[in-house]
């Protein structure tokens, strides 16, 4: 079947098997390998992308379900080579080590701040609870998100 969608403002279209997962469409067909896969049960959040503005685990959705939608992946967050405020904040707060969870974290946190621009620490922790990070212990990620929120104007 043919599937078409906008990813990071660019249109992609391909003939795919109905069972193809959205994450594989993004990684293998569109070669956007910033979106990662860390599990096979929808538990880790490494594959998180924005679908029509909502944060979704792209391993839990079929490419066919993405047909006609607008997707934002980590590659679409920085604009014109400029890190977003949140990305910059991850950098200054050392909110990443190996970087494998980072794309999913950035997307999840971007979504969180778009819904709740002024979250409490508890709300940040709950907001990224669908994303596993094995390296950082989360503290600096939480700090990075809080700091970005305090600077406002996140998206």
């Amino acid at each position: 079947m043919r599937v078409s969608m906008m990813i990071n403002g660019k249109s992609y279209s391909a003939e795919v098997e109905p069972r193809l997962l959205l994450v594989d469409f993004i990684r293998d067909i569109c070669s956007l390998t910033g979106t990662h896969v860390g599990c096979d049960t929808g538990n880790c959040g490494a594959c998180t992308v924005l679908v029509d503005g909502r944060s979704i685990k792209s391993c839990s959705m079929l490419a066919a379900q993405g047909d006609g939608r607008e997707i934002v992946t980590i590659e679409g967050i920085a604009q014109n080579g400029q890190l977003s405020l949140l990305q910059e904040s991850f950098r200054t707060h050392h909110g990443l080590q190996c970087g494998f969870c980072t794309p999913g974290m950035i997307i999840a946190a971007t979504y969180l701040l778009s819904k709740n621009p002024n979250p409490s620490e508890e709300e940040v922790r709950q907001g990224i609870a669908g994303n596993i990070c094995m390296c950082t212990g989360y503290q600096r990620i939480v700090d990075a998100v809080l700091h970005a929120a305090s600077r406002g104007n996140i998206t």
Partner: peptide, 12 residues
């Protein structure tokens, strides 16, 4: 290493 890892340009 942050610049590539934050923007989805890492190469795992």
């Amino acid at each position: 290493e942050d610049l590539r890892l934050l923007t989805g340009r890492g190469r795992f």
